[in-house]
């Protein structure tokens, strides 16, 4: 039993990743939309745990806040707004299912063949580093959020500003699109 726990602890990333994939499969296959959203929530929490296993602490917490806190609640509200019960008698899957399943299987086989060549089998665990002019007063291995923010503002300043404009546009666009026509 103890040896089992030790083995699981060493492969914690794999466990969390498989749980995330199981949640994703439950999301795709479940009948009710609310069950789908809850499986999506489970999957997102497990992905956050994967990020923590990869020692990306800040991104794990951001994943929890953005996905589990924001996006899932948004999806739940839309499920509540949109009445889904009247389509219960209709078929769950789209018309092109019988074509798309073989397509997905072929794509998976191609990817598995690529990975079989062991292209990336290096044990991936290098400590994070920053360029020397950004490091001052910071222990990079211990302070993940500070290191990521310094890297972000050093190399991705313009994309960050563009992202802020895009978020503003999406805010206005969502308001315009979802506005009821009776008010207008």
């Amino acid at each position: 039993m103890n040896a089992l726990f030790i083995t699981i602890g060493q492969n914690l990333f794999f466990v969390f990743g498989l749980l995330a994939c199981a949640g994703a499969a439950a999301m795709v296959l479940s009948k009710s939309a609310v069950h789908s959203v809850l499986s999506f929530l489970f999957s997102m929490i497990m992905v956050a745990a994967c990020f923590l296993c990869l020692s990306a602490e800040f991104l794990g917490m951001a994943q929890l806040l953005i996905y589990a806190g924001g996006i899932v609640v948004l999806f739940l509200f839309v499920v509540m707004l949109v009445e889904l019960t009247k389509y219960k008698e209709k078929s769950l899957f789209a018309l092109q299912t019988k074509w798309s399943i073989p397509l997905i299987l072929v794509a998976m086989a191609t990817f598995a063949y690529t990975m079989k060549s062991n292209l990336f089998n290096a044990p991936a665990s290098v400590a994070l580093t920053l360029p020397p002019d950004l490091v001052q007063g910071l222990s990079v291995s211990a302070q993940n959020a500070q290191s990521v923010s310094r890297g972000l503002f050093a190399g991705f300043l313009l994309p960050l500003e563009i992202l802020s404009v895009i978020l503003l546009v999406s805010l206005v666009g969502a308001l315009v699109l979802a506005k009821s026509e009776r008010v207008a």
């Binding site: 999301m27 789209a94 990817f111």
Partner: peptide, 19 residues
């Protein structure tokens, strides 16, 4: 890659736009 292909499958086979 497993998660990506589950996402592709969800886009291709489901009818519900939310999913």
């Amino acid at each position: 890659s497993l998660m990506f292909f589950i996402g592709v499958a969800g886009v291709l086979i489901r009818r519900n736009v939310l999913i």
